[in-house]
Amino acid sequence: MNNILKNLDIVVKETGTKIPMRSTDGSAGFDVFSSRKLVLPSKTVVTIKLPFHFVGTLDEKLEVRLFVRSSFGIKKKLRLVHQYNKNIDYLILNVEDKNHVINVINDGEKDLIINKGEHFAQFIFCEKEAKPQEMKLMLVPTEEMKKHTILTSSIEETIPYFFEYTLEEDLVFAPNEQKVFATGYRSLINENTWTAVKIHNDVKEKLILANQTGVIDRDYAFTSNFGHCFVALVSLSNTELKISKGTKLMTWSTEKYYVPEKEIKSNNKRLGGIGSTN
């Protein structure tokens, strides 16, 4: 395997805190577990100290990207922020820092509680200038398709293994509304890679994904729903927002990921969809 980091380890700060780890053998992201109970007031930016740090060095061509766990972004409306701006795809962690601090906002109407031991975020060791890796975007089987209202769209491969997702119906959002849609697609990728779904630059000032970047692991394609990909779109407008048919809405691409040689491995197998790993 050529995705092994030989000179980097992950260390937790306190006894009793779970070390970040990949939840399944097909996951790209290392889950971040809270070391204590956190209470996040509604509509308030809160600073969180992450309960781990890195020991060793990381190749200068690589970086560590931090994402909100999908279930927290979509179901609990937790967002990462940079300088009070939530219109970002992810945060980058500096492996040389011994105290990682991030800012988040609870976009919900009620206080959000993150209990001790819950995994609310994840990070992936990625290439800074990642070349798109092999990926097949395929329609899910008819029996899965019939269970959902599919967002009418088209997908075009604009460069090898880089896809643009174009809206083929008008969408209207109430002020700051979040809507969840089924795409009708599944992503088939190789080992040691993951698929990133991001808001297209054409609408980045108007919409975000609720989880800011959709992280699709390789083993998700083989779950009970055939790896059916869903997206949660959030309007950034304080007034009614219309996104017109023909708008390029999202991009899909696949990247390689890396893992430390001494990682703690999981024997879990993924069974369900968003938020199902534990």
Rank of each mutant, 00 (worst) to 15 (best):
E127C: 00
L112F: 07
N103H: 15
I114K: 12
K110M: 08
G108S: 15
N115S: 15
M135E: 06
D107A: 13
V104A: 04
P132A: 05
I124R: 09
E118S: 11
H119P: 07
K131G: 00
I114E: 11
F125M: 05
I114H: 09
N106H: 02
M135H: 02
I114S: 10
L139E: 13
V104Y: 04
V101T: 12
M145H: 11
E134F: 08
K131F: 04
E129Y: 13
C126F: 00
P132G: 05
K116Y: 00
V104S: 08
C126W: 01
C126D: 10
I124L: 06
I124Q: 09
E143S: 10
L112P: 09
I113D: 08
A130M: 03
I113C: 10
K146A: 10
K131N: 12
I105D: 00
E144C: 09
V101P: 00
F125E: 06
A121W: 05
K116E: 14
L139G: 03
H119L: 01
L139M: 07
N115R: 14
N103M: 08
E129I: 01
M138K: 13
L139K: 13
C126A: 14
N115C: 06
N103T: 12
E144A: 05
F125K: 08
E144V: 15
D111K: 13
V101I: 15
V101E: 14
P132H: 06
G117A: 02
I102D: 10
I114Y: 09
F120R: 06
E144M: 11
K136T: 11
N106C: 06
L137Y: 04
I124M: 05
G108R: 03
F120E: 03
V101N: 10
M145F: 14
K110W: 00
E134D: 08
I124K: 09
K116T: 12
L139W: 01
D111H: 13
K131L: 12
P141F: 07
E127A: 06
H100G: 04
N115E: 15
E144D: 12
K136H: 07
P141I: 08
F123S: 05
F120C: 01
N106V: 07
P141E: 09
N103E: 15
K110H: 13
F123I: 00
E134N: 11
G117M: 04
I124F: 05
E127T: 09
F120M: 03
K116C: 03
M135Y: 01
K136A: 10
T142Y: 11
V101Q: 13
A121R: 04
P132R: 06
G117H: 02
T142Q: 15
H100K: 12
V101Y: 13
K116D: 01
I105Q: 11
I113F: 09
I114P: 08
F123M: 01
Q133G: 03
V140F: 01
E129S: 12
F125A: 02
I105A: 07
Q122C: 10
M145T: 13
Q122M: 09
Q122L: 11
F120Q: 02
Q133D: 01
G108P: 02
P132S: 08
E134C: 03
I124N: 11
